[in-house]
Design a binder for these strands. Sequence first.
DNA 1: ACCTGAACACCGTTCAAGT
DNA 2: ACCTGAACACCGTTCAAGT
Lengths: 184, 184
Amino acid sequence: MPTPERTSLDEIVQAGRDILESAGVAGLTMQAVADRVGVRAPSLYKRVRSRDDLLRLVVEATVRDLGAQLNATATGGDPRRDLAELARAFRAFAHAHPLGCQLIFAPKAAGASLDALAATAAPVLRATTLLAGEQHALQAARTVTAWAYGFISMELAGAFQLGGDVEDAYEFGIAHIAGALSAP
Amino acid sequence: MPTPERTSLDEIVQAGRDILESAGVAGLTMQAVADRVGVRAPSLYKRVRSRDDLLRLVVEATVRDLGAQLNATATGGDPRRDLAELARAFRAFAHAHPLGCQLIFAPKAAGASLDALAATAAPVLRATTLLAGEQHALQAARTVTAWAYGFISMELAGAFQLGGDVEDAYEFGIAHIAGALSAP
DNA sequence: ACCTGAACACCGTTCAAGT
DNA sequence: ACCTGAACACCGTTCAAGT
């Protein structure tokens, strides 16, 4: 005799994301998720293989959201301007979902969400193709993405302790990197 | 009546680093550390406040090693060349201590090891001062460091899935960023 | 077919008792 | 002064029993 479903995978993943941002990775326990979706912890294993699996799904959803955000930023104009806008959108997203973003390239989530990551890369690749040419588009995209991700990681970790305006440093990086890539 | 000391803080931290690299963050348990240094788990709390504290010490030691490595790379010549050498040394270190490096800017270790980080920054700042001038040295150093850290994080996480040579992409990044920063 | 309580293994941590 | 066994709380996970 079937029991009515009291939750869903989507609800569980969303609860995981909320708890992650409010309580940190350590606070993201199966118990906490179960409480939030109104179910007992063992029931979660009907939809999720393990806590690590849930973590992977949380990161995947975050990357999908980030991809949507990037794909929604206005592009198609000057590629340097587009690249700057994409970088700013990335940073804004990271500030809105700091914990989720910090997990994107964490050891734990490695090997996950790589399809979603590819989708995220698309608008960046479009801009770097215009900027650096077909042949160097991928390397250029990796340069920009690595810089933006590294900068945001360091910022979120509070690593910029030597003074100076962090905002300015980000704009400085955007301008110089975009400038460097447009050189033939 | 005193009992002879059967271990030391240094030994514990070193054991932590070894276990981290061989068994991952999840494998770095107090039990595993205690086994390795030949003591029972509760004894560790004589030298270390908590597991998080141990993790912080592990990261701090890693950052100190990285700083020593960077300060030991030959510099003083062409600043673009110096910056390239520093970036390569950083990557080599990261490949030798991948897990430790990935924790440097992880949420967990945040707020730790910042003094050690400053020491790490010194040789980079020296090069960027020559390259970009006193006024933009800090922003330039942040740009280079963010790029290198981001690149290495992504590489270690296996995020470069779109093909292409990763080694080449790193050299591409070095060349273009150093080039961009030398512009007035 | 999903949900639950009970149970197990494991882990971080505390503490009184040893030497 | 350091070390230990015993104990506690907490967490991930399994599973037989419920509906």
